[in-house]
Design a protein around this nucleic acid. Structure first.
Lengths: 212, 212
DNA sequence: AAGTTATTCTATAGCTCGATAGATGGAATT
DNA sequence: AATTCCATCTATCGAGCTATAGAATAACTT
């Protein structure tokens, strides 16, 4: 083989090794203080480096925001699409969508929070790019709901759009309190699923008790 | 009587007549760009006055934020308390709470939005003061829910805290989309109430069909 | 060890923004 | 007409922030 030393075009092979660490710090700071409330100095302090050193990794503060937001949405849409494609009943799929929507809070909470609250401050270009994912995910919820209505699983006449916005609002809000409240993601997801599917009311004296 | 001309301490009687207009402009700008993203120049532009003239009405940008936030919560708590005190069944009260929580969006949307998204940037002092109202309102929801469970109206075992956070999240999210979506507040409130009380699911072959 | 590449540093330019001070003009009061 | 008060204006200070330029060090390769 003629792989003498190394493909000459990528000798160093890995540059900016700390890059992920840098955007993680940016996510933390943006989540705490908001994009405009945060300074690049704040981010540098978290990393223990000088403010100017950040620019070795990131071309601008806004670019950092975009990277953080991207990690905040990536996966959501793909995961959602996979769930919607399953052959399961709609109620099952909706539950899975809720779980899938809450899970990233565990390992990427700051990224999600920044995506939800700060994406409006992205430059128009990248905001549109990221908004596409958002709307895609909304459509997935709506489709699953419509499907459930068509199959008779869900009430006829319910407004799929409003229900979608309700469920997403409910889930997204979790990013702002899930650290303070001491509930695990599975417990939250279970309660939420049950809430939107079965509601809070006791069935008026008619649970399905095996049929006696 | 010696009230010769006028109570000397308040001769002019009404000063800063435009004050409400000024904080309305602040609410608009804070809602659009966020507290730190907004400049006092932006606010002045909306009013058609010079940036420095704002300081005749407001002692600082942060003070303006507090005024906006105050108008964003005021009323919520009082209205909620009145509803909780009614003799109606819990499901009825919960519906009213949802309506009451969505209504301010009509005439004070920007104030509510700013309260929800920007209160974190208030100086510690006023943030605590405002946080008290917030928590009070949460407690009202929780109590009504607990009450409903105790009365057998709501499922036993549901987590009042999580349900409260779900309902509030759902309602609060509306502040970010109710302008774009073309739904009236009553329609939204009705769909949301029905959702959390009855759920989406069709009753599993056992609506109360008169009993056959 | 020498050379090269990767990473961080110092220093600072260039803005923008919040806030203050004091002047100006108009309206109301006497 | 003279006086007082309200509202807005002009001008500017000083601080803080993003971003750039180029030097200095650390790490790696040969």
């Amino acid at each position: 083989m003629t792989v003498a030393t190394l493909p000459p075009s990528r000798r160093g092979a890995s540059q900016r090794r700390r890059a992920p660490e840098i955007i993680e710090a940016a996510a933390l700071v943006f989540a705490q203080r908001g994009f405009h409330g945060a300074t690049t100095q704040d981010i540098a302090d978290v990393l223990g480096i000088r403010q100017a050193s950040l620019y070795y990794y990131v071309s601008s503060k806004e670019a950092a925001l975009e990277l953080v937001c991207l990690r905040g949405v990536e996966g959501f849409f793909e995961a959602g699409k996979a769930i919607a494609a399953r052959p399961d009943p709609a109620r099952e799929k909706l539950s899975l969508l809720i779980i899938s929507h809450l899970s990233p809070m565990l390992d990427r909470g700051n990224f999600v929070k920044v995506f939800l609250n700060e994406r409006q401050h992205l430059p128009a270009e990248s905001r549109r790019r990221i908004g596409r994912w958002s709307r895609g995910l909304e459509r997935i919820f709506e489709q699953v709901i419509d499907e459930g209505v068509a199959a008779g699983e869900f009430r006829a006449g319910l407004d799929a759009r409003l229900v979608t916005l309700a469920v997403l609002g409910m889930c997204n809000a979790a990013s702002s309190w899930y650290l303070k409240e001491n509930k695990g993601v599975p417990a939250i997801a279970a309660e939420f699923s049950r809430l939107v599917i079965d509601g809070m009311a006791t069935r008026p004296a008619k649970r399905p008790p095996k049929r006696r």
